[in-house]
Amino acid sequence: MEYVANKDNIAKRIARMFHNGDVVNLGIGLPTLVGNYIPEGVTIILQSENGMMGLGPAPEAGQENYDIVNAGGAPVTVLTGGCFFDSATSFGIIRGGHVDYTVLGVLEVDQQGNLANYKVPGKMVPGMGGAMDLVSGARVVIAATLHFEPSGKSRMKRHCTLPLTAAREVNYVVTDLGLFEVVGDRFHLREVFAPFTAEFIKEKTDADIVVDTDCRVIEL
């Protein structure tokens, strides 16, 4: 079976996890793509850690306002009914459990629900930004990642080797192969994304994966 990395499938599947009115924080990079695939009829409220609710799309060229930026510092817009607040309030919203879902990128994620995504000692030390607060505070934590590192190793591990962003906080991992829930120190495969199979995923992933009896095959 040939594997071709597919970030859009990850974004598509995650976008279907939300319900009307959910407050969602999307990390920079792959998680941002999720915003492109929210199903019709579902309205979510995007929270941006730097101080806004009701995050809208990027402005048209020439309309950029650098007083309204996203968590990556890029100009965005605010939707009708949105609002702004300071950083302490923003993280009060995040830690206080007022954010339903946070979607974050991954360097490593393990079957205990540990996430590492902010530091590769000696190589890359960007810092955690708001990720540690988001992961410890959001009601549901979704780790969004291509299944494999460029080297071909799976990003899903038995044990993270990199410094942790948070311990035991990840609820779901969505890769371009499937959707996994972290339960009882195991990855439970809930959905396989066609054309991949549970056997393929188990073979290629260095972690304990339980294939649920009701595990579904999904076309994205």
Binding site: E49, D86, S87, A88, S90, F91, G92, I94, R95, K119, V125, G127, M128, G129, G130, A131, M132, D133, S136, G137, P163, L164, T165, A166, A167, R168
Partner: peptide
């Protein structure tokens, strides 16, 4: 490196006369 929410609260505590704050952020990490 300080988690962003902890940084905001540490500064808020400094300005509000508090001896510190308790946060779950960072438990079990470096």
């Amino acid at each position: 490196l300080v988690p962003q929410g902890s940084l905001a609260e540490k500064i808020r505590a400094g300005g509000a006369g508090l001896g510190g704050i308790l946060t779950p952020t960072g438990v079990g990490t470096e």
